[in-house]
Design a protein around this nucleic acid. Structure first.
Lengths: 252, 252
DNA sequence: AACCATCGTTCGACGATGTCGAACGGAACG
DNA sequence: CGTTCCGTTCGACATCGTCGAACGATGGTT
């Protein structure tokens, strides 16, 4: 039986000790209990502080368990995501003149958790709560591209809503690869001819996206004749996504 | 600013990923998301499995968060300790003919969480819930000797109940050092003249004791004229303490 | 039945990183 | 003011983590 990684075991022991007492522990005490030199323990708790599993009381220098541990088992609540994203989504709609939608992956679909109307006063219908097929929307492409279990794509039923809907796994795979490469996704007429969307991932943990934010509107207002998004659109989307992700990392 | 420990950071990233999805992740998927070779990730998750932070589904081989993480923030519940210790405490009382008490540290006192009567049928009073001064009992000496924050001893008010109560910090310190060295504590007449106790720590995490188990009775039945415990008494105590600790580590 | 792909796992070479003694500045105490 | 103890930094060194190669097991395909 091969060995395990000593530094991870030691970190776990430090966490156990910090969890065993309600009050913060000084470094020397931790070192004494772990039977390790202070500098060794200091390296461990400094790393645990950086990843949020341990916090250091600035006044006393003592250490205790951090909220990062409690957060591990919790997926981001849709209401929390909506709360955090709405400010940026409002601004994005105002600046782009387009409707803004935010979605989270729900099996083969994208569930809209936030929707800001395009600001031109035209009649619109609130779509929050609606499930849209992930393969047929830019939002869905982003969610699939950054889903933890990418192999799930093989299981999707790829209904062709329009001639431009990716309706084979090869076509969808290519679109997702392109999204991963460029960091965003665009799709023209995937669900409705004449309507296009561009979306970007909202990251919470390394490598995956908790949601996606996108703009959607008439194709000629979202994309240039070349098929590329209008100048500045992608940058604004990425900025909104990044800002939302930052607020998600804030502790309440 | 000096660096942090890469392997601990990587372990934390693995835990975040496992926490981000409700279903278990295969090793290859974890490796892809972490952008690390499979063998590297395997070493990390094997270690996390060993410390209980991750579990592996035996059927599929996939990994998910373990209960060890949730356990970190929770001290052992007195009712749980009582439930786990009672079998061993009953046996100890039967074999030694002495009353058995189990306690947990509560500030400067030892709180009795379990009490088994001496089996001679004499009238006795149930003492569960009672707080006894830690410095004046063998149980309390054990709890103080293996407390996470040893420096708290300085803050104790050392009331002298009998001439043999350790009533200076020096005397108490010596008694605790002796306890740590020999792995158990004995005290004759600390609280009541003519009554002696011997106690051993119940460990849950490395280096600390979650509780203590001890026998208490007339001095001549607990200790030999030399002051040493009766033969076999310490071994039986340590066995009961160890068995209790083992059941505490079991997952319900 | 044979072949193939992919899985989790083990082995072991190698050098990158973790370990930890020495030493630091700061805070608290007598 | 001197002393003690704290958390922290530095840097030498060799231990340990990394990871390519390869394994047996499993499931799917022909």
């Amino acid at each position: 039986m091969p060995g395990t990684i000593q530094s991870i075991e030691r970190a776990a022991q430090a966490l156990h000790l910090l969890g065993a007492v309600p009050e913060p522990l000084p470094l020397g005490e931790l070192a004494r209990l772990l039977d390790l030199p202070k500098t060794t323990v200091h390296g461990i708790v400094r790393t645990l502080c950086e990843v949020g599993f341990v916090v250091q009381d600035p006044a006393t220098g003592h250490y205790s368990l951090g909220s990062g541990l409690a957060d591990l088992g919790r997926a981001v609540d849709p209401h929390l995501l909506r709360a955090r994203v709405s400010h940026w989504a409002d601004g994005l709609a105002a600046r782009t003149g387009l409707a803004v939608e935010v979605a989270m992956l729900r099996g083969p679909t994208a569930e809209l958790v936030a929707h800001v109307f395009r600001p031109d006063g035209s009649p619109q219908r609130l779509r929050v709560g609606e499930l849209v097929p992930a393969h047929a929307t830019a939002l869905g492409h982003v969610l699939l591209a950054w889903a933890p279990v990418a192999s799930r794509v093989r299981e999707l039923a790829l209904t062709a809503y329009t001639p431009t809907t990716p309706s084979t796994h090869v076509a969808l795979g290519r679109a997702l690869q392109l999204a991963r490469r460029q960091g965003w996704a665009a799709l023209d007429g995937g669900l409705t001819l004449g309507t296009a969307g561009v979306a970007a991932p909202i990251h919470h943990q390394v490598g995956t996206a908790v949601g996606a934010i996108g703009v959607v509107g008439p194709s000629d207002q979202v994309l240039q004749p070349s098929g590329a998004p209008h100048p500045g659109l992608v940058e604004q989307l990425l900025a909104a996504a990044h800002a939302t992700a930052s607020t998600l990392r804030d502790r309440l």
